[in-house]
């Protein structure tokens, strides 16, 4: 019974311990047979890379990071255990980068000439190439670093926005609102003025049209008149008219002479028949009569002038 107990307990303990150790070794991908080969890479900074992270060659996991050690002169050595079948590319370099959003990193072995065209990255690789025994390596910025930069940018934008907010306070907003309202009123006024002016222009153009029509009519009547004048000229009516006017003027001149003569006779007659009223002397009598004659002459001259004006 006792031996039975011993065997059973021993078997259970051994089985459980062996199973546990085997499971741990399997999960940890331990190199029990020592078949994997070591590759060392040289870095300035390994980011968030940890022991156990995958080593990827051409997109296939070809090993694990076995150790990360500080090296002299500010370098970090990363020792990787690669599968025996994994073949490195020519001129291999190692890039450390995040493999997912959940913080796990990986080491990718690539050819030097297929590096991304990033000057800083190439410079870091060139810088790490001095050690012949180790592969040159560089770490790409992690999502955390990128997020930090993005956060910094967001902070700057927020700062600018807050400054704008400080400058653009309530009073500024009120003023802007008032300005907008003023501009709106101004534009409506301009619209009204433009509308009024348009109606004035319509009226003006209408009147102009009427004036043009009147002018056309006038020009037509002038044309008619000129035609008539031409026809009149052609038929010597105008000459006859002028001759008539000249004859009338002669007649009027003649009539004027007759009137003058008549007035002379009248004065003579008057001086004979009526005593002088102003003075008994001959001189005064002749003076009184001459004033009357002068008045009559003036009237006749006025009449003659009027006739002449009418004639001209």
């Amino acid at each position: 019974m006792r031996r039975n107990n011993d065997a059973l307990v021993g078997a259970v303990v051994v089985i459980v311990v062996v199973a546990l150790v085997a499971a741990i070794a399997w999960v940890k991908q331990s190199d029990l047979g020592g078949t994997q080969r070591d590759v060392i890479a040289h870095f300035r900074d390994v980011g968030n890379t940890r022991v156990g992270n995958a080593v990827v060659i051409r997109g296939v996991v070809g090993g694990r990071i076995d150790a990360i050690e500080l090296a002299p002169d500010g370098w970090v050595d990363v020792r990787m255990k690669l599968d025996p079948a994994a073949r490195l590319p020519s001129e291999p370099v190692v890039l450390l980068s995040e493999s997912s959003l959940f913080g796990d990193w990986q080491a990718t072995i690539v050819e030097r000439r297929s590096l991304p065209s990033d000057a800083a990255l190439r410079e870091a690789i060139d810088d790490a190439s001095h050690d012949g025994r180790a592969l040159p390596g560089a770490s790409l910025p992690g999502i955390g670093k990128l997020t930090a930069v993005a956060g910094q940018i967001a902070g700057d934008v927020a700062s600018v926005a807050s400054r704008v907010g400080t400058a653009f306070d309530d009073s500024a907003a009120r003023e802007l609102r008032t300005s907008i309202r003023d501009v709106s009123e101004l534009s409506s006024t301009l619209r009204r003025v433009a509308r009024d002016h348009a109606s004035d222009l319509d009226t003006l153009s209408g009147q102009l049209r009427v004036a043009v029509a009147a002018l056309q009519r006038a020009s037509r009547s002038v044309e008619t008149t000129s035609g008539r004048i031409d026809s009149a000229t052609n038929s010597d009516e105008a000459r006859r008219l002028v001759q008539n006017f000249a004859a009338s003027a002669d007649e009027l001149r003649h009539a004027g002479a007759q009137v003058r003569d008549l007035a002379e006779r009248l004065r003579t007659t008057q001086a004979r028949r009526s005593p002088p009223t102003c003075a008994p002397t001959r001189r005064s009598t002749s003076r009184c009569g001459s004033s009357d004659l002068r008045e009559s002459r003036t009237r006749i001259r006025t009449f003659a002038d009027a006739c002449r004006g009418a004639h001209s």
Binding site: V16, A19, A23
Partner: peptide
């Protein structure tokens, strides 16, 4: 001594 063994076996079974 045996609790860890039993728990170890339980870990394996649960996994």
């Amino acid at each position: 001594a045996m609790f860890p063994v039993v728990v170890g076996a339980a870990m394996l079974v649960a996994m």
